[in-house]
Structures are given as C-alpha cells and as structure tokens.
Design a protein around this nucleic acid. Structure first.
Length: 501
RNA sequence: CGGGGUGUAGCGCAGUCCGGUAGCGCACUACGUUCGGGACGUAGGGGUCGGAAGUUCGAAUCUUCUCACCCCGACCA
C-alpha cells in the first residue's frame, strides 16, 4: 500500500505553455496565481495578498541577514529636492530621464465645474523628485551625522518604494513604482567600504540560493553596466528558464563620490580631514519575477518551501458531511502536529469547492506539499502526499506524518535548487569563436563564458550585433587568459555574456 | 517614445466589413444529483458595448479625438 507512485492526469489548462509563449506564460502565471495585477495607474501594479505574503517572507529573511551583519533600519523621505540631484554628475545622468516630479502642492475646483485642477498659485519654490533611489537625500543627511572617525561606520538599510518612470513595464520585472530595500553605508576607509560591498553581495547570493533556491553567478559589472555614480558594481545574475539572464541584486562601491558631492567629511585618528567612503546595495520586488521564472512549470508556480506562504495544504475528500466530520477530526490533529514543527499549513475543508478544483488551484499557486485524506485513508490510517516539484504522489501512513513532511519540504527545497543549477550548467557554454557565439545565442541561449578584450567598444559592438551584454566578470570560474572572441586581442579571463531582462 | 494589435457581463470571446436597440462559454444565484485531478442537470440574475464628441429617424457597428492594456523596438533594476 505504500509508495505506489501515481502520475498526474492534467485537466483544463489555464496557462499558456512555456514552449508556446514564454512571456505570455509569465504574465498568465503572475495573474492566475494571484500574485499581482495591473492597476488603474499606468505602469504600477497591485501586489495581491498571496504575492505580498511571499514578498514578506523574503523581507523577513533578508532583514534578519542585514541585522546579523550589523545593519539597522531607518526611513528617509519619499521626496527629494531637485537641487540634490544635480550634485553628482554621473548619478544625474543615470536617472534624469525617468524621474517623476512634484511641482504643485494643492488642487482646486475647476472653475468650469469639471472636477478638480491643479491650483496654479500653489507652485512649489523648489520642485521635488519622487525618489528613484535615495543616495542624495541620505548623503545630505549623513553630512550632519558624521564628524569624526568615531561616528563611523554607519550601516543603514531602508525598506521603501521607489519610482522610475519606465516606458515599458512588466509585472514585478519592471514597474514604474516598485518595493525594495536600499542599504547605504558610510566608512572611514576604502578597504572597509570594499569589504562591505562584497559582504552584502554575499548576503544576496546566500539568500538567492538558500531561500529562493535560485543559483546565481556573482561578479563585477563592466564600466558601462555600472550603477550611475558607482566606482564598482557587483551583481548576482540568475538564469531564467527561457535562457535569459536576470540581474537579481546589486551592491555598489561608491568611493568618495557622494561624500564629495555632499561634503561629508570626518576627522581621522591623525586629526586630518578626509572624505567618507560609501556603499549602497539593493534588491527589489523584481526578485518575485526571478522566483516565478526560476522554478515554475506549465501547471503553475513552484515555490521553494522556505518562501511558500502555505507549505502544506490538506484537502479532505468526502461524499457525506458525516465523513467530513470524521476527516476534520483527523485533519485537526495533523494541523496541530505540523504547526508544532513550524510548518505553515492550511486545512481547506471549504465545502463550496471540490477536491479536483482544490488540487488544481493549489498546484497553480505552487504549494509544495499537498495532503489528501479520504474515506479509504480513514480506514487505513493513511493519507495521500503529493509534491509540487516532481508532480508525484504516494500513499503514506499518518503515523509520523510530521517528520515525513519536514523531510519532504527540505528535499523539495534542495531538489528545486539542484534542478535550477543543472539547468544553468546545461545552459552555460564556453565559446571562443564569435560566429559560433552568435549562432548558439539564437539556437540555445543561456550563459556564455567568453574571452573579452576589456574594451567598452567591443562590449558595445557585441551588444549592437547580438543584443547580448556582459552580465558580469565572475568572481569564480575559469581564469585562464586567452584571446578576445571578437577582436583577438589579449583577454585576462572569461566573462559572462547573455541576453537579459 | 516609435511600429503593430486589442478594448462588448467578473473572465475569455462572437457580433463591427454591410447601422435596426446585444449573444456564446466559463464564473455567479437556487434546488437536486455528485465528490480520490478544475462534476452534471434544471431554473435564474447580471452589460453606460473603454471614454468624449459627431453623422443619422436610429450607432457596439460609420467619422474624429482620447484613454488603457498587450506584442515588437529604443531606454532601464
């Protein structure tokens, strides 16, 4: 009676398949799985409760990691005086084209009686920018907080929304307003700031791999891909199932650029005045998109147990309400046992939905484990356990169901990571010939490890000719020197190319 | 921001060419039978046809303007 694995019979498809149209599959899934939807405001989304629950779990895990590495949370204003933006030249350059600007502070009734209009007399002295990122307001504030090396380091994070006026938006991947965290740290030495930059990249990589079950390549951005105003940008890059890369988190070494722009200096131990060294780092709700595209299949979401709002769902199967009563008794005990073990469990005994409907629904929503109890199980002291990642089911005894669930959840977490890692390895190609690179980019996609001569011209040429960009100069991986695949000039090491989101 | 497409019931669509007062499937409500992979029957309810203006006796349908969304580019996390 045990271990009789059955395979699923699929009923009506509600999703476009990945093979048919990957982009449509993603859009369908985000909406059908109740993660988010488009709002009445152009380019802005509504994150729905189920999607937000996942984000909250991400926040919790990241926030704990930030605290463990010595950071504190704070909050800075949504609005930034326009003049702040013009202080750091590269920074302005990077963000000027996508800023929302507040020009007035009052509405009035339309003199023509057609609703309300902006009161022309209520023009702001200085216009306010809705933050696209907070370096300027934060460094303007840090100036007042820092006098001596004794005031350093300052290691602050804020959870906030930011606005970047994007032309073309996609749920989670690119929206005009999004949620994120931005860390902003101030240090006495260059070395310490560099270490902070790397530490936080490692935090992101650890989070991506251990919580999201999403393998990432860590590395440095090339100069042209760097954050506006940064001396060095580090990134974690993930590979999506359609063979495109997704930049999933960045950590920037800002040097003394912002300190100089905002005149943030400190007196060192020798009594000399120096500029402060800075970092900033962030991940956003874009991670939700990464999560969806890393593991999910044509039946719906596949969530890593560590981030799943519901880890186990219990579905009763019954004909008569007396049977349901009996099952309720058994299920309540299972719920108590699982909760005891720290598992988030939902017992769905809603009489208005049928088992088949519930199966499909929770599969669509990516619940890692489903436990079904019917009349046969009541007799045998068993239940049916179905795992979302492999789509397999087995009949198991109720005795010891708690530890069984714990080990299965752990197994699912590691299995989907392994699956994603295998996919990435199968889709990472070492190429030395530019023509072959172009061909494989179209035929196969994925990551490419190639030699590059280090020039922005070559990088630009590859981008124009193939739409592929250098995702990063990896921290790990092959480091043997060679010849640039495009120009044949010497190359210190291979870099990671891909088409990206 | 350029090119293309789509807006008709909560969702997915037909009807638009050729103007005559709106229909189908799912969902919803009630009852009954069902319930181990999105059940079935019977009877119901629901629509400013994206918005505005115009042509006309009459507009979902024709004209102009406008808004939103989707796809492809340019830009970006």
């Amino acid at each position: 009676m045990l271990n009789n694995k059955l395979y699923f019979i699929y009923m009506a498809k509600v999703l476009t398949s990945r093979a048919e149209n990957y982009a449509q599959w993603y859009n369908d899934l985000v909406i059908k799985a109740d993660l988010a939807e488009n709002s009445a405001v152009r380019g802005c989304m509504v994150i729905k409760p189920y999607g937000y629950a996942i984000w909250e779990k991400m926040q919790r895990a990241l926030d704990d990691m930030f605290k463990e590495t010595g950071h504190q949370n704070a909050y800075f204003p949504l609005f930034i005086p326009k003049s702040f933006f013009s202080k750091e030249a590269a920074h302005v350059e990077g963000f000027a084209k996508e800023c929302a600007v507040v020009t007035h502070y009052r509405l009035m009734n339309d003199p023509d009686g057609k609703g309300v209009v902006v009161d022309p007399d209520a023009k702001l002295e200085e216009e306010l920018i809705v933050r696209p990122t907070s370096e300027t307001i934060i460094w303007n504030t840090y100036r007042n907080w820092i006098q001596s090396y004794r005031d350093l380091p300052i290691k602050i994070n804020q959870w906030a929304n930011v606005v970047r006026w994007e032309m073309r938006t996609r749920l989670f991947l690119r929206t005009a307003e999004f949620l994120w965290q931005e860390g902003h740290t101030a240090h006495a030495t260059k070395q310490e700031a560099l270490e902070e930059t790397e530490t936080m990249l490692k935090v992101y990589a650890k989070f991506a791999e251990e919580w999201m079950a999403m393998p990432v390549v860590q590395g440095y951005k090339t100069e042209s891909e760097r954050f506006a105003g940064a001396l060095e940008t580090m990134t974690i890059e993930a590979l999506m199932q359609d063979g495109k890369a997704l930049q999933s988190g960045t950590s920037h070494f800002l040097g003394q650029n912002f300190a100089k722009a905002f005149d943030v200096t400190f007196t060192n131990q020798e009594g000399k005045i120096e500029s402060v060294w800075a970092t900033s780092w962030g991940v956003s709700t874009r991670l939700m998109g990464a999560l969806v595209m890393s593991h999910s299949d044509d039946n719906g979401l596949v969530l890593p147990p560590k981030l799943a709002p519901i880890q186990v769902v219990i579905v009763p199967i019954y004909k008569k309400l007396e049977e349901l009563d009996q099952i309720n008794g058994v299920a309540d005990k299972i719920v108590a046992e699982l909760k005891q073990l720290g598992i988030s469990v939902k017992y769905d005994n809603d009489d208005k939905r049928k088992p088949g409907w519930k199966f499909a629904e929770y599969e669509l929503k990516g619940v890692p484990l489903r436990l079904a109890i019917g009349p046969r199980d009541l007799q045998n002291g068993t239940c049916e356990l179905a795992r979302r990642d492999t789509l397999t089911k087995e009949i198991v005894p109720l005795e010891g169901i708690g530890s069984k669930a714990v080990s299965l959840l752990a197994d699912i977490q590691s299995n989907i990571f392994k699956k994603a890692l295998d996919f990435r390895e199968a889709n990472t190609t070492v190429v030395d010939d530019y023509e072959e690179f172009k061909k494989l980019l179209d035929d196969k996609g994925g990551f490419f490890l190639c030699h590059w001569d280090g020039s922005a011209e070559t990088e630009e040429r590859v981008k124009n000719e193939t739409k592929a960009t250098i995702r990063c100069i990896p921290l790990e991986g092959p480091t043997e020197p060679g010849k640039c695949m495009v120009t044949g000039k010497p190359s210190a090491r291979r870099v990671l190319f891909a088409r990206s989101y």
